[in-house]
Design a binder for these strands. Sequence first.
DNA 1: CATCTACGTAAGTGTATGCTTACCGTAAGT
DNA 2: ACTTACGGTAAGCATACACTTACGTAGATG
Lengths: 108, 108
Amino acid sequence: MAYGSGIAALGDPTRRTIFELLGVSPRSVGDLAGELPVSRPAVSQHLKVLKDAGLVSESRVGTRRVYRVEPEAVAELRSYFDAFWTQALAAFKTAAENELRGEAHGNH
Amino acid sequence: MAYGSGIAALGDPTRRTIFELLGVSPRSVGDLAGELPVSRPAVSQHLKVLKDAGLVSESRVGTRRVYRVEPEAVAELRSYFDAFWTQALAAFKTAAENELRGEAHGNH
DNA sequence: CATCTACGTAAGTGTATGCTTACCGTAAGT
DNA sequence: ACTTACGGTAAGCATACACTTACGTAGATG
């Protein structure tokens, strides 16, 4: 159940923006901070959360740290919602059929 | 950008559990509270958030309110991660190719 | 009409958390 | 070695928020 921390990590808007920027192309911490209305340490802290959730990975080049999206983690989230959607649709249809049979009245 | 509030709403673990329970089958507020370690009003508040995000819908039957997952909203989240995954993969490959060309050295 | 059930809402509280400034370590350039 | 660039971490703060209890309200039941 690694998707849990993933969704939680993407709950914050700033963090989701960072994630989407990294989705376009890998970036350094300073670059990210330059495109965001928050300080560089704030970006660092967000990156730590994203990294702990396995959503991004880090690679050092000189004094810089380039962060990039981990496609595998995204695939995991995708299949989570994919499976959930299938299940929800089935439950939706089943509930609708039961209502047609008039089951929603007698049981108190 | 309706997916934003959706992801944010699912950030909370309790709310995600509620959402998954409703994914299996529609339920009333009291039923949900019975399966969760929180009070019934807490469940009500979570449901309000989920409903505002468009993830669930409500239907009244007698004094009870039955909540169910909105499949369309789930589909939206699914395609968001689907598109993001495609884009991230492309960015991943592009970055890898650039590194093979040795571009990561000269630029200071 | 009285009452019970099921639920939403208001008010209050404690903790989580997103942000800032200050500081420290590490790698490169001169 | 000194300095500069880059970024992680600590400490503190202010707000958000998840939860509780208490109360109000709409629909069923006698």
